[in-house]
Design a protein around this nucleic acid. Structure first.
Lengths: 227, 227
DNA sequence: AAAACATAAATCATCGACAAAATATTAAAT
DNA sequence: ATTTAATATTTTGTCGATGATTTATGTTTT
């Protein structure tokens, strides 16, 4: 009756299962193509069958998992062809969002862009120097920068779909070992992007973004071809 | 042992529930904002709780249903603000797909565009005359026409997301009573679109599509404002 | 030995009953 | 009339049972 912890902070088991599975799929702990047998998952995550199945259905809707009738679930496989396809979609939607955002962005947006670019460029420099200690932080700021650019697009739905594509691409990025030779001229690319955005040069922003992502794609394709 | 119906063609109960619920949500049988209590659904659809919950999770991922922790599910509400947002996204993604498709479309695509435009324009004419008997058929051909235009975009992912946005818009369309005064110059709009696509005039195609969909949006907003 | 078939073992999909947690509702008390 | 307490309702999750369907295994046939 009188326990201090009356506020509900713990997410549902479905939500926990969803988050855990999604994370494991994205970072490769659950390998692409792997069959997801309910019993195994149950002992693996310590969660009952029902919440697990519900989480799997949601993951299926998001494209992380394939559900085939009477044959259970499996981690969505990765393959180069699909990645090209995915990246095309990602770039297309990103640019669509950019077109709107760069035109509509107000002064506050400008300030955020400047801030995000500033922080990121600092880490970009460290990345080049090799003095970067916290790579995860770079990841975060990089994502933040790109998200800020599109943030003023004025459509939550568009952002939602953009995020969905983004996270799918992320899976491919993580799956590859590109990290070692990532040291492109990211610094130059990022500052050029920021500059173009602030100058409201829509076409340039789109072109730069497209090239930016397309380069990443090329790097990945090299060794994703193991499939 | 020997019953004639040994082959399994029937979809899973989850799939049935998903399809049925989705249909009912789109066509308004399940009203926007309505709470979806499992027990009620169970007797309503004659399907057990587990498959229902799984279907609801999938619908939640697709945005047809809202799942709030410990408070169950409800049909995603409709409101004018959200529709503007949604339509922005829809137009953006459609145009992104069009840009790619119109450039990449081969001769076969051209032929399909011509065919789809031909069939649709015929019904457009009947719509104007008032001699149209089967409105559903017009709907189908209209959808087919637009789908054909983007079909050569070269990215299944992009088409997938385009479809998701399309179907969400559809929900708003169905929810409104605009049908009566639909008689715009659809014929002109459609044939202009087809012509521009065949002439590979990317920018024109995008502009026409944008206007096309934006007009629909305006019609809807008039009476969606009941919310 | 390869293909075809039959049998057995796993796995999946579903149900129904029940327990635990959270939310909503009603009643009581200040 | 608010706040507090008590009660009811709903949601979430567990468990075990059951029938269907796959998948694996083994055996026969050509």
């Amino acid at each position: 009756m009188e326990d201090g912890t009356s506020f509900n902070s713990e997410p549902t088991l479905v939500e926990q299962a969803f988050a855990a599975l999604r994370k494991d799929i994205i970072d490769g702990t659950r390998a692409p193509g792997e069959r997801l047998r309910i019993d195994k998952l149950r002992s693996l995550y310590g969660i009952g069958a029902s919440p697990l199945r519900e989480a799997l259905q949601r993951l299926a809707a998001d494209g992380f998992v394939i559900a085939s009738s009477n044959r259970g679930f499996l981690v969505a496989p990765l393959n180069p062809t699909e990645f090209e396809d995915l990246n095309t979609a990602r770039i297309a939607v990103e640019c669509a969002a950019l077109r709107l955002s760069v035109v509509a962005g107000d002064e506050d947006w400008e300030a955020q862009v400047v801030a995000a670019a500033y922080s990121l460029e600092k880490l970009d420099r460290q990345l080049i120097d090799g003095t970067l200690q916290d790579f995860d932080r770079w990841e975060v700021l990089n994502a933040k920068f790109h998200t800020t650019l599109v943030s003023a697009c004025g459509s939550r739905w568009l952002l939602r779909h953009r995020d969905m594509l983004q996270i799918q691409c992320e899976r491919y990025r993580r799956a590859s070992v590109y990290h070692a030779r990532l040291k492109r001229d990211l610094l130059t690319e990022h500052s050029a992007l920021a500059k173009a955005a602030l100058a409201r040069d829509v076409e340039l922003v789109c072109r730069l973004t497209q090239e930016h992502y397309a380069k990443t794609a090329n790097h990945l394709l090299v060794d994703a071809s193991a499939d």
